[in-house]
Design a protein around this nucleic acid. Structure first.
Length: 290
DNA sequence: ACGATTAACCGGTGGC
DNA sequence: TGCCACCGGTTAATC
């Protein structure tokens, strides 16, 4: 599953390749067309296939940025700016290739859903096995309000204060800390993998209630989240199940994880505990984490 | 009015 | 081999 570091890596590698390129045409898979025809919001959100395909040609990509786990493609057509927003969901991936045969892994190739053909040659391909991802064309960010409610970027100066403020709200103070830090309105881009790692590094039990953690420890935990995210960015992200880089390669962070997906605690060697917290599978050490 | 729960979007994976 | 429950990031709708 792509989380913040994986999306960051993707944006960094896409940037030099597709910035300045102009979309010539769009191709949408039969699967998506059928779903959309049946009234579903599969991948292409807030639009029908036809108007999307008519809108995209002549769009020039001016800039690409990551915002939380979203990719923002800033595009322009006829002097008018638009924002193409992409979220990879559980299993989305972007590939830049000259032809589909360059996508090696069958399970991605089989689930190719959107292809942007560039005037300059080459194509930007969106593949998504489970189709939980989304693509949304906006005039501006404000046109899709949930984007405005996202927590600040974790590396922004105000991110810590925002998180501390949220932690004292009635809505959050009785929640398990893991659910709290994985909430995109609290911390941007911290999914299951990195929440699990940060909590383990802090030796905090994922089920501990937010209000039962001192301000000092909450601050330390936030720093630990930032550290593990940065460490992962440096190491090319975690390739667990369906994440791939745009050249199809895997990242390396999965080899540096201490708790996520582990059977045994690396510190005390006790068997790890697997339990659902806040609706998500959680792994932790029942004796080291309190 | 707010918070909590549920449904929606899906197919790979693993257990039996 | 075959079936089927399970899993999950995020929002929208409903309770």
């Amino acid at each position: 599953m792509p989380e913040l570091p994986e999306v960051e890596g993707l944006v960094r590698s896409l940037k030099p390749i597709v910035t300045g390129k102009t979309i010539q045409s769009v191709e949408v898979s039969e699967t998506i067309m059928t779903s959309k025809a049946n009234g579903k919001e599969a991948v292409l959100k807030g639009t029908d296939v036809q108007s999307f395909c008519e809108s995209m040609p002549r769009m020039t990509i001016k800039q690409i940025e990551r915002r939380s786990k979203y990719i923002y493609f800033h595009v322009i057509k006829d002097g008018i700016p638009y924002l193409l927003v992409s979220h990879l969901g559980m299993s989305g991936a972007w590939f830049y290739v000259r032809g589909l045969h360059e996508i090696i892994e069958e399970k991605f190739k089989r689930h190719t859903h959107i292809i942007f053909y560039f005037e300059e040659g080459g194509m930007l391909v969106y593949a998504d096995i489970r189709r939980f991802g989304e693509l949304r064309l906006l005039k501006k960010e404000e046109d899709y309000p949930p984007l405005l409610l996202m927590a600040p970027e974790p590396f922004d100066l105000n991110a810590l204060d925002h998180y501390l403020e949220m932690s004292t709200l009635p809505k959050y103070e009785n929640k398990p800390i893991k659910e709290f830090i994985m909430d995109g309105h609290v911390v941007s881009g911290c999914g299951n993998i990195y929440a699990t790692e940060a909590l383990f590094r802090m030796r905090i039990h994922p089920n501990r209630k937010v209000k039962r953690i001192s301000k000092e420890r909450k601050i330390q935990l936030f720093h630990e989240i930032v550290i593990v995210l940065l460490d992962s960015i440096e190491n090319g992200g975690s390739s667990i199940s369906d994440y791939r880089k745009i050249n199809g390669e895997s990242g390396n962070m999965q080899n540096r994880l201490q708790m996520y997906g582990k059977k045994e605690c690396p510190v005390c060697h006790a068997k790890t505990v697997q339990k659902t917290i806040g609706g998500r599978t959680s792994t932790y050490c029942g004796s080291c984490q309190r």
